[in-house]
Design a protein around this nucleic acid. Structure first.
Lengths: 267, 267
DNA sequence: GCGGCGAATTGATCTGAATCAACGCAGCGC
DNA sequence: GCGCTGCGTTGATTCAGATCAATTCGCCGC
């Protein structure tokens, strides 16, 4: 049933074996610096950051690894620092991609916060760099620190809205339109003829757009009608303005969804 | 493109005209009682409840009304006290149902919290009873009161997880399976033959299950194979246990998703 | 050079569900 | 009574996109 299931079906390596962390002479320092690097945690006071860092572990995970499976109970709160992670709904053998996470995001905070079983499988797409904090430690910190609670709320808000956007894209546009809009989104504000490069392998893009490789390939060919010619990973567009006109940007579907905090918009 | 668009296409009555509220000699008292009636707000201290109630308005809205449209900026935080509300993704003429809200839930807190445009249209399904709080008042209260922040986080968490469940149901099951599982969920723990009643009109169920009336009707006929016979709004099941076996309950899709607060599971 | 392998392309076919269309059958107003 | 209108059923048709199958391309190791 499912488009885009990567071939390497995971060298099962649950992070539960916290031991395998990258060795560091002062691990807490590294963890603290990593947390500091997440800009949307900026509002969180230093002592809470320290408390989290004290129990944190940094982890590198190769592509294809299973981070956790659905029905498992969250053991760690996880921050994605690099790479990407696919979140999949699973039923028997069938998998369906629900979302693709990129830095700097949390891995399903909804399950961690509610201390209930994951509803999705998480598999590493591109080799990832994670920061792990024991789930209970994290929940305690959220319960104690209002500022942390507020930024987690902001993070979850962004994830919710991204999911709505994704669902609208899938249900309101045809496969060809999705491809066209995806290409259009790569054009930036170019005016005339441009040649750009696909940002990743095609089967990867296909699964993000919710279709099979074959359908994606056919849709790309069909783009020729609009002066969009794809050869290999390079995309030549005769007239960027015209292309955008055919596949108009919809801010309520395609727009970027930043993680914001309550306090950001007080001003 | 869309299943289940109700006929009465909204007697546009935006709540922005806060005036139309139900008259009450002591409106704040009524609002406070309403807020007290929302059990998941239990953790929130009395003075915050009072502050919210002071600016709150109670509102009754008939079926079919448009609460707000996508792209609008939230004016009120809204609590659904009775009735139901459909949340729709819209593109041009096409609508697609994303979620159906029931009491006691907030109406897209994600947009209110982030102070960004709604991504969905909200239309009243069954005549609704709402409590409105000016958006900025609500955001300020969340920014000031940690407990309120925590329960809103819990509310949003539940909504996120419900949406994941819904998406899995749609993408991992066929139309017929969805219908079967829906029927099975109505059986409770009956063992042998039972006759039950459909909880609402069929076209309504169809749209909740993400299909057209026609497809739903055909699927119901097909249920006869499994000893499930529908006539009018009554459903006769020959063997409830067998029916459940054909359409097994999946706790990661069908399960109920309660609104929980961080503090609930401290014990 | 060769062989092998996964990604990509292309074509043929299949299928689930939407769409289109016609009709039965309630309830309601007059 | 009449006709209306909205729900529900049933049948025929269409269609987008998945699936199946066959090839080609590009890349890597040797």
């Amino acid at each position: 049933m499912e488009p885009g299931v990567p071939p390497s079906l995971s060298s099962r390596r649950p992070p539960d074996t916290g031991a395998a962390a990258s060795p560091d002479s002062r691990p807490q320092t590294a963890a603290r610096d990593a947390l500091r690097g997440i800009s949307w945690l900026g509002q969180v006071p230093a002592d809470t950051i320290e408390a989290l860092a004290a129990h944190a572990v940094l982890h590198q995970v190769p592509a294809g690894s299973l981070l956790f499976d659905q029905a498992e109970t969250p053991v760690f709160a996880q921050f994605l620092l690099a790479g990407s992670i696919e979140l999949l709904g699973v039923r028997g053998r069938a998998e369906t991609l629900i979302e693709l996470l990129t830095p700097f995001d949390m891995v399903i905070p909804a399950a961690v916060i509610s201390a209930r079983p994951y509803l999705m499988r998480a598999r590493v797409y591109e080799a990832a760099h994670l920061l792990l904090i024991p789930a209970q430690t994290f929940r305690d910190a959220v319960a104690r620190d209002h500022a942390l609670c507020a930024v987690v709320l902001g993070c979850l808000t962004a994830q919710f809205r991204r999911q709505v956007r994704q669902e609208k894209n899938l249900k309101l546009r045809s496969a060809e339109e999705r491809v066209g809009c995806f290409i259009a989104s790569l054009l930036g504000d170019a005016e005339a003829a441009v040649t750009i490069r696909l940002p990743m392998e095609k089967y990867l893009i296909a699964s993000q757009l919710g279709m099979t490789r074959e359908t994606f390939s056919r849709a790309l060919s069909a783009m020729a009608r609009f002066g969009i010619v794809v050869r290999g990973e390079s995309v030549h567009v005769d007239d960027a303005t015209a292309a955008r006109a055919h596949f108009p940007f919809d801010p309520l579907i395609d727009g970027f969804e930043p993680i914001t905090s309550l306090h950001d918009r007080r001003a």
